[in-house]
Nucleic acid binder design. Sequence first.
DNA 1: GAGAACTTGCACATCCATGTGCAAATATAC
DNA 2: GTATATTTGCACATGGATGTGCAAGTTCTC
Lengths: 215, 215
Amino acid sequence: MTTERAAAGQPRRSHARSNRVRLLAAAREELGRDPDASLDEIARAAGVVRRTLYGHFPSREALIDALATEAEERLEDAFTAARRPGAEPPAALAGLVLASWEVGDHYRMLISLARRRLGEERLRAILAPARAEAAAILDRGQQDGSFGTHLPAPVLALATESVVLALLESQPSPQRSAQWSDPTGAAAATAVLVTAGVAPAAARIYVQAALRTGR
Amino acid sequence: MTTERAAAGQPRRSHARSNRVRLLAAAREELGRDPDASLDEIARAAGVVRRTLYGHFPSREALIDALATEAEERLEDAFTAARRPGAEPPAALAGLVLASWEVGDHYRMLISLARRRLGEERLRAILAPARAEAAAILDRGQQDGSFGTHLPAPVLALATESVVLALLESQPSPQRSAQWSDPTGAAAATAVLVTAGVAPAAARIYVQAALRTGR
DNA sequence: GAGAACTTGCACATCCATGTGCAAATATAC
DNA sequence: GTATATTTGCACATGGATGTGCAAGTTCTC
């Protein structure tokens, strides 16, 4: 505590570094369970005293911000890895969903946090590029006839995003027992294509192809 | 305050009755803006002092509960009015969405409240009949071939519900300026049918028909 | 193994929301 | 018009969460 170097991104001692990671993980976990979880609960879940948390993150807001930054980076990584410039719109959209699935699952609690006062725009900013990219693909697909025009492209992007989020939230977790599960995101991707107006049978084929290309 | 009759459902003086209504309306409004809005903010928004709110609702929980009860009744009313036992599944589903649209718009803030500790199951209980009814229709439609089988019926119900909710939230409100609007819910109903696997063109026709039947 | 980084365990101050009590003022129903 | 339901404006108690200070451990790093 005397030398508050820990507040920066990189603590020097290894144990401190791992504590920082565990705090962030615990924050994801606890805030996912309850968006109003106290810092005490989070610290405790990380196997650390509350006072220690303040050594790493000066405030609750700073903690959440660090979480958001983490999610931002992962999402960006996943996207650039999945980007296929020349692909047909349905294939591109399927790839996008598949790529987002894992990281989205990891950080889904941020969505409920986003409804809060603090960080609303911040979180919106994180999702914005994703939605923009989806909207662009959807727009392209509406023009070449592969998607339906029952909704304007930006609204359609909203709808598909919500489907992904809803299916994410229905996934089994430590708290919620499993009714069904979709580890690869294939079902989610199919559902998104269908929502965009692709016939279910065709959608399934696109997703299968994207799955093969992906890994 | 001496005679706490106001805590019951029906205050005796007319002014008190209208205050109760205004408190509930303000609660909808303020909690929609911020799920953590304090009772003070709500009372103030209703043009009343905090102490008065306690005359009508003994606790924050009681207030939210009253709100939930209100929503429950309206939703139930809308549903029974829209129920068409013999209808084809797509027509039935379209009717369901159309019927839910208005009341859903009115009480959409309850959704974010539902993510909270208090009232989670309560709100889930309110939505449950709606989702169950949708799931039944979806199941029926999957069996007669009018819907896709890309997702199991209960999961599909989840997906369609999320689409409705997302489109609801994208509607213009006092806080959010309009990008598009769907006053009748026709676009939402169409989107739901498409999500269920109906081709966009066919979906539009079903919704038009349902709209005509509805009113 | 010595010094620094980090953790711990208190204690403490602060802020904010909730819920209650009471006396005085107001408005309504009859 | 008068009894009374209701509102108001305090004041106060409580509880919980946040954030800080400090002294004494631990443990990593070099």
